[in-house]
Amino acid sequence: MTKKLILFSSIFAFLIFLTGCQSLTVLDPKGPQAETTADVIMTSIWTMLIIVIVVFILLIVMLVKYRARNQADDYEPPYIKGNKWVEIICVGIPIIIVIFLSVITVKSTYEVEGKPKGYENDEPLVIYAASSNWKWHFSYPEENIETVNYVFIPTDRPIEFKLYAYGPIASFWVPQLAGQKYAMANMVNTLNLAATEPGEYMGRNASFTGEGFAEQTFNVTALPPADYQTWIEEIQATAEPLTEDKFNQLLEPGRLGQETYTGTHLEFSPPPTTHHGAKESDGTENTEQEMNDSMEDSMEN
């Protein structure tokens, strides 16, 4: 009886959860990268559901059937050591499931780390996104403009975000377009994504950075390429230039609204060139580099 209660309430909760899925941000993707992750998530949920149901049914059967109250008083449970076949099944089925999920994981991980599907041959738009306490600075080196706490991107074009931070580690996250990646102070990370539909998407820092962390959000607006071009031209014509002093002021800890400038901070405050703080390889690192290459080769083969 008691177990059933748990079972029903959890199945009930799960049903609510599944019906709500479509409207949940992460499961409502607007670009190829997020679509891949959403598919992976749904596949894993269904697979795991099978395991959960099997365990729950087994548990309920055992608890109801072998309850002391449902048995004769003189019943003496037998001594059962274990059975080879049962154990092979207990090990075998999880192994099969793990292999299945591993294949999906490896495939999808390479997919979301690479260029967005369908846009492999397009020239990506490079945007530098830097976190500072507790803001996001977006620099468009080609268009020579900079925005704070919001970013406009064209639809149907791959975007390459170059991520780094002034200060603590932040995690760049636009759930409807792609998964997270860290922005760190001593290394530049690359995040590939693309938007297939115009619209406004929530973006935020997901990694705790201190007092203003909860509000460290930004808006991503995806515009059709023509509208995007208009926007660029408008900014270039109207915005104030970004000076070094002004940028240093922006870096002061605190919250800011959305701001727009011409020019970028990349000229006077370039992104880090180190790899996790270490200088890029000198002579002695060759073998490590080679090892790395050969490992990648063997993966591809």
Binding site: A34, T37, S108, W173, A178, G179, Q180, S207
Partner: peptide, 21 residues
Amino acid sequence: TIGGVTGVMLAMASADYQYHN
């Protein structure tokens, strides 16, 4: 079991990009 299977879900790197933090 529910906690455990969601652990397996989190272990899938590509999906973890969405669950992380």
